[in-house]
């Protein structure tokens, strides 16, 4: 019987059957909702804990089994992946300029995305502090010690690292206060600080490794959470955290990508995920992972005492917002390019 059917038809049928099976399996996989959270470098540990908690929370509320996939990398390059078409449901990046770039270039979310969630869409904050070697052999106390000759400062490149942009702006804010907004002096101050940087890594994690593993530099400018993590890993007897007199309030924002969640049909889960970040349960996890919670009410006091009180300047008040900062300081030929001239 089979012989009477032309051979190519048999092949075609087999192929169709295979395609059918594949479609069914993929359909089944799709029916179980999947969220993709595209995030920046140091949040691996944080979102691993958050996701576990949210999946069980979502299951209890809707009966749906949720899968959450994570992607981590430098904040800027993660934004670029989303711009280039990475199908992210949620982005949780290091600074709003990166989500602004997604909104501006893809129109996949509205320009006013940051107004959609409480507190500038930032469910937690962090700041920039110093990590020095045990005993602080160079006697560093504040930002103005970092411009002294002979001090080596480790920070990543602000052009490639979101964290490094916060570092740079924190130094700028300090100098701004010190010199009473005399911009020539501020430029000179930040320029001298940058000239004390012997290695410019591309990301925050790489800089941490240069400082802790390669033993280079006297001071590491670091995310507060990253510094705590480094202390925890090193066992606490090699480095110490130093709190400068003034630093910057870093507000890493979160957003859902409207066009993507609508095609993926994941809007309700994505929205719930973002709102979950503001709940007491999530806030406690956030504090446990060394980020500063917005709502400390239900946080373990043990996790709170490690956040010292620092005078924190806000990017909107001190610099007029990220889009302005990005243009003035970090664009090609901007202030960073003007004041940073190594090898000359």
């Amino acid at each position: 019987m089979l012989r009477s059917i032309p051979r190519y038809l048999v092949h075609l049928l087999a192929l169709l059957a295979m395609a059918f099976c594949l479609a069914i399996t993929m359909g089944a996989a799709r029916a179980q909702t999947t969220l993709l959270n595209v995030s920046y470098d140091p949040t691996r540990e944080l979102y691993r804990d958050i996701n576990r908690e949210f999946i069980s929370d979502w299951k209890a509320r809707t009966g749906q089994t949720l899968t959450i996939r994570q992607s981590h990398g430098g904040s800027g390059s993660q934004a670029r992946s989303v711009i280039d078409g990475l199908n992210a449901d949620i982005v949780t990046l290091a600074l709003s300029a990166d989500i602004d770039a997604i909104a501006e270039r893809t129109k996949k979310l509205p320009d006013q995305w940051q107004k959609r969630l409480p507190q500038n869409s930032s469910p937690y904050t962090s700041t920039i502090i110093f990590l020095v070697r045990k005993g602080n052999p160079k006697g560093v106390r504040d930002w103005d010690d970092l411009v002294k000759p002979g001090i080596q400062v480790i920070t990543p490149n602000p052009k490639t690292s979101g964290g490094a942009r916060w570092n740079y702006l924190a130094a700028w804010a300090f100098a701004d206060k010190l010199f009473n907004k005399d911009e020539t002096k501020v430029r000179d101050f930040v320029g001298r600080l940058l000239n004390n940087v012997p290695i410019l890594d591309t990301g925050a994690r790489a800089s941490t490794n240069t400082f802790t593993k390669r033993g280079i530099g006297d001071v590491l400018l670091s995310w507060e959470n990253e510094a705590f993590l480094a202390l925890k890993e090193a066992g606490g007897d090699q480095f110490e955290i130093l709190v400068p007199s003034l630093s910057i309030l870093a507000e890493p924002p979160v957003a859902l990508i409207d066009a993507n969640v609508d095609t993926n049909k994941t809007r309700s889960a994505a929205q719930a995920y973002l709102e979950f970040l503001y709940t007491p349960k999530a806030q406690a996890i956030i504090a446990k992972n060394f980020y500063r919670p917005r709502d400390a009410q239900h946080v373990d006091p043990k996790d709170l005492v490690r956040f010292p009180k620092i005078e924190l300047v806000n990017i909107d008040d001190a610099f007029g917002g990220w889009s302005k900062v990005q243009q003035a300081h970090f664009a090609d030929g901007g202030i960073f390019d003007q004041i940073y001239k190594p090898g000359r």
Partner: peptide, 15 residues
């Protein structure tokens, strides 16, 4: 070390 003008390679400039 990636210092511009000293130890910065062209592919890094692209990145």
């Amino acid at each position: 070390g990636n210092l511009p003008g000293i130890s910065e390679i062209a592919p890094l400039l692209i990145v």
